[in-house]
Design a protein around this nucleic acid. Structure first.
Length: 257
DNA sequence: ATGGTTGCTTAGCAA
């Protein structure tokens, strides 16, 4: 079972690239973020022709998340549903082949000290509470998505420049640790310990050619799945060529079922 | 300190 996550930065702008990538990589499950369309505008029919079901938590212009699956998904849940009024579509969950799959788009946070950063911290606390309810670390679950946090120094090309930013600071590390303490393991780090692997590069200032990136997109798995994770990688090639997203897809392969 | 780029929408926001 191949599980992927990709912040596509608009599914409309990325449709051609997404479709050819699906054919090339043949993922069984794809968590998408920043689709930037409402459900009405989502390309359900075209994806069905490629063999994918889709569950969508859409939003016009900003945000929006989805999960594509080869087999029929069950128990779809759109949003955190904790009673907080939240107009931003940033989380969707569904069960696929016995795995609870979550596609999450953690708020970026803009700049330290802003309302957007406060919203990011609050959203991460709500995500932690969401994970605490309804399942345990012995349940097969993956938390996939753009977490907008680089966990460690080795996940940042230039740690000095990013230290203290919204993507890389002690406050978001602590919250990420609390989220991972719900029984989640970084599948990428099961297979790669070295620095130099990133999933996002700014569109500006030639960040990609300089490989000035950060690893902020993740596939976190509970032990039943992590034990069966046979490989993990970042599809860096998707950041190249015409009209790339600013994020590359991240993938993990599992011996499942 | 600011700006650099892309996407959505059409001047300005978000990343």
């Amino acid at each position: 079972m191949r599980i992927a996550t990709w912040n596509v930065n608009s599914i409309r702008a990325r449709q051609e690239r997404l479709f050819s990538w699906l054919l090339a990589q043949q993922p069984d499950v794809v968590c998408l973020q920043e689709i930037k369309v409402s459900k009405e505008s989502f390309p359900f029919a075209e994806l069905r022709e490629l063999g994918y079901h889709a569950v969508v938590c859409g939003q016009k212009t900003y945000n929006g998340v989805a999960i594509l699956t080869r087999t029929e998904p069950a128990d779809t849940e759109c949003g955190i549903n904790d009673g907080v009024e939240d107009l931003q579509a940033r989380l969707i969950a569904a069960t696929v082949e016995g795995i609870r799959v979550i596609s999450a788009y953690v708020p970026n946070g803009a700049k330290m000290g802003t309302n957007k950063y406060a919203y990011k911290l609050e959203w991460m606390r709500r995500l932690k509470a969401y994970l605490q309810h309804g399942h345990t670390r012995s349940d097969p679950l993956v938390l996939c998505g753009d977490l907008n946090v680089a966990p460690e120094e080795r996940d940042v090309a230039n740690p000095g420049a990013w230290e203290g930013s919204v993507l890389f600071n002690p406050e978001v590390w602590a919250l990420l640790c609390e989220i991972l303490d719900q029984g989640l393991i970084d599948t990428f780090r099961l297979h790669h310990s070295e620095s130099g692997h990133y999933s996002w590069w700014d569109y500006r200032l030639l960040a990609f050619p300089r490989n000035d990136g950060l690893r902020i997109d993740h596939i976190f798995a509970t032990p039943p799945l992590a034990e069966r994770c046979i490989s993990a990688f970042i599809d860096r090639d998707q950041r190249q060529g015409p009209k790339p997203s600013d994020h590359a897809p991240v993938m993990a392969d599992f011996n499942w079922p």
